[in-house]
Design a protein around this nucleic acid. Structure first.
Lengths: 204, 204
DNA sequence: CCTACCGATCGGTAGG
DNA sequence: CCTACCGATCGGTAGG
């Protein structure tokens, strides 16, 4: 076995270990918060020493930023069933359903990672807050693009303001997330699915 | 000056001091979170020693519970302009406007105390979480009552499900709160006011 | 309401 | 990736 092979294996182990840490961090952060998440407890969770984590991330902020990135990839994978639906109105409904499904299945135990992170960090300036805001802007821009596509296809009235419509749809999703968790009641998700559909019907 | 008078004054001083602590706690909690709020920093903020706070509150949980109660009274006072509007549809609009106004004026620097608290504590069982859930239920029940009154008066279609309608209105308010803070953009509040009005118009 | 203190835990570092 | 450690801060208490 050459030195090169050993080197590759070591690097691969490091990658796997890093992924394991970030997966746990993304889940824990939706319960403890991104600030409440402590490196000591995270280390215990993944069966590692605190300084073991510092070998992967130079500071808590670096860990938080990598965690946001990981959460972003997890959410993108969850939204994939929506992204493969026919563009326009159908895709908007499928994206909203995929979002609500990932909340219901508690992919993140504390609900949507970004709703949780936004609520916690919206008043705390810094790189972590900015990363969350950027992810949210991307999500909103994605939905707005689909609204415009739907308008061009005649599925949604040209008189609808895409920003207004997406604000309202997103409001339904955010509310479903927080009240599903607070009241532990799936009826909130049912109301959200109905709300999304009726809002889109009323837009044509 | 009698002993009795001194006793009364001392008690009044204690009350004022307690109110000062709780006012600061309610504001700080929307930035640091109800868990992130530390007794040491809160003591510094109000110019008192840590153990001075423990003379008022036996534990952090007691302080948190008293803080939720204070926030509830602050919010009720903010909603008063809505409560004095004519019952039914007008009161619903006025209540939503009063809510959005208190967010815009940053009565709590981190936005709605209960949205912030719900996002933080919805997955953390305990008395504080329960107190926030109860306050939210009261708010929702209040709006649902106004919807039924409006239906009885013929202002809102009898076919509307009050739970569904209030879920959607509340969704607009929750979304306005989080995105106004995250993007620091008053346009989110404009969209919320428009969304509330259009949703109510479409219900008749 | 204060000073003085407790054990536990925080983020982070030295050195290997 | 580890052990061993740092100063700071946490919630909370003793005693006044």
């Amino acid at each position: 076995m050459s030195v090169e092979t050993t080197g590759r294996r070591r690097r691969a182990d490091g990658e796997r270990s890093r992924e394991k840490i970030l997966q746990a961090a993304a889940e824990l952060a939706t319960i403890e918060g991104l600030n409440g998440l402590s490196i000591g407890r995270l280390a215990d969770t993944v069966g590692m020493s605190k300084s073991g984590l510092y070998a992967h991330f130079r500071s808590k902020e670096e860990l938080q930023l990598a965690t946001v990135e990981t959460a972003s990839r997890i959410l993108a994978a969850e939204l994939e069933p929506g992204m493969v639906a026919p563009e326009g109105k159908a895709r908007i409904v499928a994206l909203c359903d995929a979002f609500l499904s990932h909340v219901e299945r508690r992919v993140f135990p504390g609900g949507c990672f970004f709703a949780s992170g936004a609520a916690e960090l919206s008043t705390q300036p810094g790189r972590v807050r900015d990363a969350i805001a950027t992810s949210y802007r991307d999500w909103i821009a994605l939905l707005q693009g689909e609204v415009r596509t739907a308008q061009a296809a005649g599925e949604i009235d040209e008189g609808e303001d895409p920003e207004q419509l997406v604000f309202e749809l997103n409001g339904i999703l955010v509310a479903a997330n927080v009240f599903f968790l607070l009241f532990d009641d799936p009826a909130e998700l049912v109301r959200a699915r109905r709300g999304v559909r009726e809002r889109l019907e009323n837009s044509h």
